[in-house]
Each structure stands twice: as C-alpha cells, then as structure tokens.
Design a protein around this nucleic acid. Structure first.
Lengths: 231, 231
DNA sequence: TCGTGTGAAGACGTTCACAGCT
DNA sequence: AGCTGTGAACGTCTTCACACGA
C-alpha cells in the first residue's frame, strides 16, 4: 500500500513487508502510538509541520529512531522541511488500525477495576468500555461506574453476541487464568492483564501485562544503590 | 551496607555480585522480580527444589533464558537436580536489594490514585505507601484511603524529612512534569508514572511509565488484523 | 542419566553517517 | 542550507547446543 509503486525494492529478508502488520516490530508499534499522541497535541497547538528532531524530543526518543520507526509507515517527510503533522498522524492512525475502534470490556470490578472505569484515560484516547463484569456485582452496584455491570455468568454470551475482542482483566490473581480461559474461548484476542499472574494463552491471543508491583520493584532496584555511596 | 562488617564467609559469592549491579541488564532485573514471585509461590506449595525448565514455565519464559538470567545472580543450581527454592529466592532477593524496603509516596489521589492505595498489590509485595498527596485534599478526604493524606504544599518537606526515594505519580497529564520536577528536586530518584506524559528528568532519576491507554492501543493493533481475513 | 552453566551464534533493536531531495 | 530516508555498524538480548558436575 505504501511502498509498492517504487517497484524493485530489494525485500531480501521479509518479502511480507507489504502485509505491514506482521513486519513492524512490536516496540515500534508502541512508539507509533506515542508519536500519534504527540502529533495530536501538536495539532491542538496549531503546528502544521514538524521535524523529526522536534517530534522525537516530544516523544522522548532519538531523532534517528523516530525516522527509523516512521520508515515502517511510509515516506511522508519533505526533505529540508519535515513532516505535515496532520498527514503523518493520519498515516500512523491507519497503520495502527485506529479508524475503527474496538469495543472493550472489563472483568473484575474491584478497587482497581472501578478506578479504571472512572479513569478517563481510555475514553480520551478513543476506547469505549461497553460493559463490566464481576462475580459479585451486588457488591459493586453502589459505586457509580458509568457502564452496564453484569454478573460474570453473562460474560461468555456477551462476548459472543457483541463480538468483543479486547478485555481488561482485573480479577484477583487466583481467578485470572480461569477467567482468561473463558475470555479466549469466547473469542477475545487481546487481554490487558492487571493481575500479577503469568497467563497461559494460545499463540494467537495477545496479552499485555501491567504488573504494578513489579514496576515498583524494578524501580527500587535502580534507587537503593546510592543509599550507601561507597568509594 | 549489606554484608560487610559481619564478614560471613558463606556469602562470598554475593559480595562480588553486589559490585556489579550496574552490569545486570534491565530486562533481566525485571524477570528476576518475576522469578522471585514464582519462587515464593513454590515455597508456599511446599516445594523445595525446582528445575530451570519448571521455573521457566511458571514464569512464562524459556528455560535457557532463565538460566542465563540466573547466571547474573550466581551459581546456585545443582547439576542433575535443579535449584533449592528458598536459597535461590534469597539470592535473588539480595541482588534486587529487597532486604530493606523503600518507603513510597503517592502523588495525586484522584480515581486512579485512590484505587492504587486501596489495591493491595503493593503491600503484598512488601512495599509500604507511607503518605499520599493531593492538590485538593478536601475532595479526597471522604474516601477511605488508609494512609495519611496531605496537601501537595507539604510534598517537598515531607520527602526531604523522610528521605523518600520512590514516588507513584497519578496527577493529571498537564501537571505531571511540574510535579515531577518538584519530586526530583526534593530527592526522589524513582518515579512510577501513570500520566500519559513523557517526563523529562535528569539521568540519575529512573522513570517507569505505566501508560494504560497506550497498552490498550498496542493490544488493539494485534487484534483487528483478522477481522477481515481468515486464511 | 539429568539438568546446570556458558561459549558461540543468532535475532533483534538502535544509532551512525551520509546520500539525495527540496 | 536543512532534513529525510536508509545501508551499515554497532550493541543488546535470546536461543542453541554441549561440556561438565551430581
């Protein structure tokens, strides 16, 4: 779609590059989302063009890396000038498949789950959580969560009926694998997992783990070393 | 500070390791935390020894990778048998510097911040959030958050007085950089950042970003591809 | 025999540096 | 001039495969 008409490009290794998605490194995808967000802010500020170095700085990466990442998207830059902010944003948006947004469900409406529902971050980036599920919905009812809440029994049929492919998983660690199995069986293909558990899923299913305690622990490793400041 | 003046002979291995903290890859550190957690579960189940392949499976990594990671910790395995669960766990714990835990503060007690405070995950892994701060504490007061809550004005002095090095940042995106600057000036060296913002900090400060919308977006990329093709 | 520890190889990701376009 | 796009160099992480010890 992007680089075919230039013709005889030597695609020695992965001839599949036209089928873009398979060819773009996972880390690049992640950063593309970041660039997308930065470009949006630039648009809000009325900027029309931006250079790789300026955008890179906004995203916290090196300019060379940004250009490398964008090379997976296509050639949008004007040499000597930079990129058209809006054009580039749309191109990234297309590559990321953000034109038609996926509906999302949330499973496990405990403390964290409810907070995520109220947290505007997902909506602001265009995701809509269309329903929440909990094993004991009565306990959650009194909280104002702003989306329909169902008993977990309804989970499977809801997923099938609404063709849900994305789920946020906030159940206790002990239940996580079990619930994940249900999700996968019903057709969910992506799970954002907040449980401190290593989920076992089929290869075609993607799991992104958000492990809060692990992040903290990781941070603390890089801190405590100068508590003693030897030498 | 760890094991110097008491001069235990049996800990000779560790002394070397202690010096090379800088030499362990970041990704390995992350996985070591994961192994640590898995080993803890094994202990609870009464297991005394474990092979690299079994532990690797529990952690969701390849056995070869696990062994490579552990080689940064030292030689604890018994060929033909495996590892002593408890011994290995202690060794990892030591490398990670988990013997003396860092106190943590939380800044920005909105929806997400409050949920994190109530969420038991940090405590369960040994971290203690000793205080929370908010620009408008009155709005939060009525919620039961279980830790002392202060006005953000008190932030700097509190950090200095309590020698806080770790902070969880949950303020709105617009405020994030500003608050981060304060934290760094007061002596914080590690920030767990939940704001969808690229923080600019000095090199000696570590920032771990937990960007929820970005994770979802990333997931959705790997989903929508077979909405149309079934080959 | 079994399973660790590790050199070597490979895969992957990043950065350099410059050709080439505006 | 200024800036992109990219081959090539470089560095990092992962996996293989096997020597060696229990």
């Amino acid at each position: 779609m992007f680089l075919d008409k230039t013709g005889n490009r030597r695609l020695v290794k992965f001839v599949e590059i036209d089928r873009e998605k398979a060819g773009i490194p996972k880390k690049t995808i992640y950063r593309l989302s970041l660039y997308h967000r930065c470009l949006f802010k630039l648009t809000e500020n009325g900027l029309e063009t931006v250079s790789s170095s300026a955008l890179a700085k906004a995203a916290g990466v090196k300019a060379s890396q940004l250009r490398r990442d964008l090379s997976h998207v296509g050639q949008f830059g004007t040499r000597g000038l930079g990129y058209q902010v809006e054009e580039l944003r749309m191109a990234i948006r297309e590559v990321l498949g953000r034109e038609h947004l996926q509906p999302v469900i949330l499973v496990g409406a405990g403390n964290l789950g409810c907070a995520l529902l109220r947290y505007g971050g997902f909506q602001k980036e265009g995701f809509e959580v269309i329903a929440a599920f909990d094993a004991v919905p009565e306990a959650v009812m009194k909280r104002d969560i702003g989306v329909p809440l169902f008993n977990s029994e309804k989970l499977d049929s809801f997923i099938v009926k609404n063709k849900v492919k994305l789920a946020i998983l906030c159940v206790p660690a002990e239940k996580a694998q079990e619930v994940a199995n249900d999700l996968v069986l019903s057709g969910v293909q992506g799970i954002l997992n907040f449980s401190p558990t290593v989920l076992q899923v089929p290869e075609k299913v993607t799991v992104n783990n958000v492990d809060l305690a692990l992040e903290l622990e990781n941070l603390s490793f890089f801190i405590d070393r100068d508590g003693e400041e030897e030498e």
